[in-house]
Nucleic acid binder design. Sequence first.
DNA 1: TAATGTGAAAACCTTCACAGCT
DNA 2: AGCTGTGAAGGTTTTCACATTA
Lengths: 209, 209
Amino acid sequence: MEPFEVPDVVVLRLPLYVRALTQLVAEETEVVSSQQLGRRLQMTPAQIRKDLSYFGRFGKQGRGYSVSFLLKELRRILGLDRQWRACVVGVGRLGRAIINYPGFAPEAFKIVAAFDSNPQQIGNTVGDLQVQGMFALSQTVQERDISIGILAVPAAQAQSVVDQLVESRVRGILNYAPVAPQAPKGTVMMNIDPVLSLQSMTYYLKNLA
Amino acid sequence: MEPFEVPDVVVLRLPLYVRALTQLVAEETEVVSSQQLGRRLQMTPAQIRKDLSYFGRFGKQGRGYSVSFLLKELRRILGLDRQWRACVVGVGRLGRAIINYPGFAPEAFKIVAAFDSNPQQIGNTVGDLQVQGMFALSQTVQERDISIGILAVPAAQAQSVVDQLVESRVRGILNYAPVAPQAPKGTVMMNIDPVLSLQSMTYYLKNLA
DNA sequence: TAATGTGAAAACCTTCACAGCT
DNA sequence: AGCTGTGAAGGTTTTCACATTA
């Protein structure tokens, strides 16, 4: 059972449920109510139930949700029941930190290639990857079945790299560059931008006691 | 002129306007309409005008907005007309990438201290900072007038570090750890979590053509 | 003429409250 | 008795559309 049109905000919350449920599995909790889950995540039970109801009926009235069942279902809904192969473009300090970060693999994301436009970088080893030149992008994306590109290049290069990724049929882009590049419909772009977060944060800090 | 209660979504968008206007200044554009700005940012002109209207009247009918004036006003509204001093906690690969990232300083954020709980790290130099032990947190926060803490520690340590930051009177926390720690009201926490972004992304990728 | 600023309308999202199931 | 799933209510955010002004 899968719906017409789920609000984006709901899709953004599903990974939070996945994370909380994963913890609960580790704690060997077998059943959880929307109330208990809500307490963990600081949200209302009604919101959790409503969010889940977009996708089906996963609970048992009077009892709650089977942790392992709900987790499995949510992972399926999000497409986390398969492995997603990603490449990193840009192997500066940020790119290296990303490649070496151990948090992606357990969550169904495997980084299988690294690229850089700087010829000095080509051939270097990062993690257990050989850095390749941008000219190799298209072919490697195909060969290694890459569907996600992680952008860790300076702002000035971001748009051009996005264009090359799209051209190479990468559909998902996680963008760390401090710009919002344009991409055609059918491409999914998520932006990670700590400066924007800090700049909103100061609005609230300034207006505190 | 400053308002009662501005929606959070609006505050989250203001930095986007700041960024676009900064570009326009660099391009030596003097006047911009909500329509032109909307085209750059992929949003409707009405939304931009409504957002700005929470804070005052910055435009000229028939003409548009003075780029430099609007930029100055927005920076003031966000509190970006002063410098904010931050510390980084955790100097692993991510912490080091953050400290060396050149994108914070031009945007009014200066990283002036680094901490790590690992005694091996204490005394090491990162960027031009000496890594300090956690025991020094409270005193250094006071001495260096630090109001923002940037968390780059493993999930397991995040809550404890947040508690220590709050205890040391740091009011803003930029959290890179893959958990959502609790903090008392009056603390402003922003989370940066690429795994959550990827996990929502796959929902859309999976449901593409 | 051209574009802002803004009430009002529309769309969207969250919360309520309860029927219904276990 | 306890908790889900869900229409309906309530609240928030976006968009519309136009009076107003440079």
